[in-house]
């Protein structure tokens, strides 16, 4: 019994956490911008999508220059994508949000929605309506290296379940929850490593450096921070750049993980990452990470135990439940009457 549950947990953990780590990276961007400006950066999902494309274009440029070795091109592409997306994030803030900073909250949100549509359609019109393939030769060494753990003989476990539980439940459990083996790929390991590394860097930056102190000060009180001589505009630009770079790194990993990228990839991803940010408590950085991981796990649990058909609905069901029962999220502060 214990072995069975262990196997189940592992399988869901590996796949679900890989998804969740990606949601978390994107959710950080939402939460940071919200923390500092109090606005939902609706175009953040598009920044993630631009990161996906930025990496493939960087790989294309490197390929044209004759660089093929994965060990060199992949890190370079990730960095290039991060810079590229950060650039778009900064421009976005500069063009569409800065003028609306003190306005009624409808204004920046509407502007962000407009920006999101513009960016998405720009990519659709200038790159392709269809899909672009992430170069297989780059992703394959990582994606094809897989390890399979365990090859458990489950007949005795199934028999145990059937003898212990009521008939209907037992059959359901035996059919849904029994796992023969667990797969783990090098790509998934890379996703965990990069996510952990980047988050560690971010926490260090925010908690341990002078820059981080300044960022936190601006988030707490913009006017006061500016009176104390901090360059508020610059710090806000930095926030956008950081969030966008994180989203871009998520974008590179997603495009390797899935093998293809599309202009509309950012919409659903952004929505789910936003859900993750709300679940963790928007404005709260550790909250975004926890929320992302939870959403990833919940989704995989759904496709595993119920059916993939309902996977999409899970995130939205969670969103509505959280806002209903605990609007401030798991770790957030009270937001109900903060108008």
């Amino acid at each position: 019994m214990r072995a069975l549950l262990f196997a189940l947990m592992l399988e869901i953990l590996v796949n679900g956490l890989a998804r969740g780590a990606i949601y978390a990276l994107i959710a950080l961007g939402y939460t940071m911008v919200y923390g500092i400006l109090g606005m939902i950066n609706f175009a953040h999902g598009e920044i993630f999508m631009l990161g996906m494309f930025g990496a493939v274009y960087a790989l294309g440029a490197l390929g044209s220059a004759g660089l093929m070795a994965v060990g060199i091109t992949l890190p370079l592409a990730i960095v290039a994508a991060m810079v590229f997306s950060a650039g778009f994030g900064i421009l976005n803030e500069r063009i569409a949000y800065r003028k609306l900073r003190g306005a009624h909250l409808l204004a920046p949100l509407t502007s962000a929605i407009g920006m999101s549509i513009v960016l998405q359609n720009f990519v659709m019109l200038s790159v392709t309506k269809g899909k672009v393939d992430f170069p297989r030769a780059i992703a394959a060494p990582l994606a094809d290296t897989t390890w399979t753990f365990g090859s458990w003989d489950l007949s005795s476990i199934q028999a145990t379940i059937l003898s212990v539980l009521p008939d209907v439940w037992a059959r359901w459990m035996a059919s849904k929850w029994v796992v023969q083996s667990v797969h783990l790929s090098a790509l998934q390991l890379l996703i965990f490593a990069i996510t952990l590394g980047l988050m560690g860097l971010l926490f260090w930056l925010i908690q341990r450096t002078r820059l981080g102190i300044a960022l936190r000060a601006v988030a707490q009180d913009r006017t006061m921070a500016s009176l104390c001589g901090m360059k508020v505009d610059g710090l806000i630009t930095l926030t956008f750049a950081l969030g966008s770079a994180l989203a871009a790194s998520a974008g590179v990993m997603v495009s390797m993980y899935q093998g293809v990228l599309r202009f509309d990839a950012g919409y659903m991803m952004g929505l789910k990452a936003f859900t993750a940010a709300v679940l963790g408590g928007i404005g709260n950085i550790p909250g975004a990470v926890i929320g992302g991981l939870l959403i990833g796990l919940a989704e995989d649990l759904t496709s595993f135990t119920i059916a993939s058909e309902w996977k999409q609905s899970t995130a939205f069901a969670i969103l509505i439940l959280v806002l209903w029962l605990r609007p401030r999220g798991l770790l957030g502060e009270r937001v109900a009457d903060k108008v």
Binding site: Y57, G63, M68, G87, V123, S126, R136
Partner: peptide
């Protein structure tokens, strides 16, 4: 920033799995 999308084209080579610009 918009230059790569506008002025260049990706040429994927599905035999080798690499891409060039």
């Amino acid at each position: 920033l918009t230059a790569p999308f506008l002025w260049t084209k990706l040429d994927p080579d599905f035999n080798t799995g690499f891409v060039s610009l």
